[in-house]
Amino acid sequence: MKKAILSIIFLSLGVSTLFAQNEFPSKVWHKGNIYTTDGKVYGGEIKYDLENNVVQLQDQTVDTFSATNVTNFELFDEVYGGVRKFFSLPYSMGSDYATPIFFEVLTQGDELALLCREYVATDSRGMGGYGMMGGYGMNPFYGPQSMMGYKLAFKYYFLKNGEIKQYNLKKKDLFEMLPGHDEALSLFMRKNRLDYDKRGDLLRITAYYNELN
């Protein structure tokens, strides 16, 4: 639980840098490592593209790796001030055939893991606030982030017993995804004022659930 809380604190430290970058995290080069399926490790500047499930490495040249030949990659996100880890896992997106795609691992335990895939969505609220200035409204690890009429959004998944299931951000379904401790989870959420549809809160809830098991 302490590790999960520390991760949230580290990620929150980069808010001031976030305003200065004026870029979504997938548009920025980060220092990191790529681990390929043939056992090799490549280090340098990394840029990821979850929509196309590729990760690029910039050293003397720019090389592109797909999720099919990468086991995982990790990077130090200077925007948020923390280490982020992504794994290539088989998942079926609209078909019966599962193919490797990248998931960010937010927290994991012996019972289950909370996964995430970020994407840039149209901001239907309009271009108010920082959106008009090309800046950010909030740290996306806690809430919506807007820039020039777009925002950073997230899809969440739970990995349990080798199966990945998407979480639809409904409280009822959260307890179905995390069975067996409804009363303890409800008390924990009320005590810490946690929501069932926010990134940082979901991380804390899942980490606590893994402790209970």
Rank of each mutant, 00 (worst) to 15 (best):
N161H: 11
N210M: 07
F154A: 07
P25T: 03
Y136F: 15
A98N: 05
S26W: 09
R125K: 15
Y35H: 04
Y35C: 01
E78M: 13
F19G: 04
Y156Q: 00
K2W: 14
T71A: 12
L112S: 05
S95Y: 08
M177T: 00
Y142E: 00
A121P: 14
I46N: 02
D173V: 01
L159A: 05
V79N: 12
S16Q: 15
P140N: 06
Y157V: 05
G128H: 07
Y35W: 03
K170I: 11
E74H: 08
R84M: 05
Y42Q: 11
V70K: 08
D123Y: 15
T71F: 08
F76L: 04
D59P: 12
I34D: 07
S92G: 11
E23Q: 05
K172C: 00
L50C: 06
S88I: 00
P144V: 00
D49M: 12
L202H: 02
G39R: 04
Y130T: 10
L6P: 08
S7I: 03
L115R: 00
K191R: 14
D96N: 14
Q58N: 13
V105Q: 14
V41L: 06
D59E: 11
Y80R: 10
N210A: 06
N213T: 07
I5H: 10
G137K: 08
M177K: 04
E163N: 09
M93C: 15
R204T: 13
Y48Q: 03
V62E: 15
Y142A: 05
K40G: 03
L112Q: 01
G180T: 09
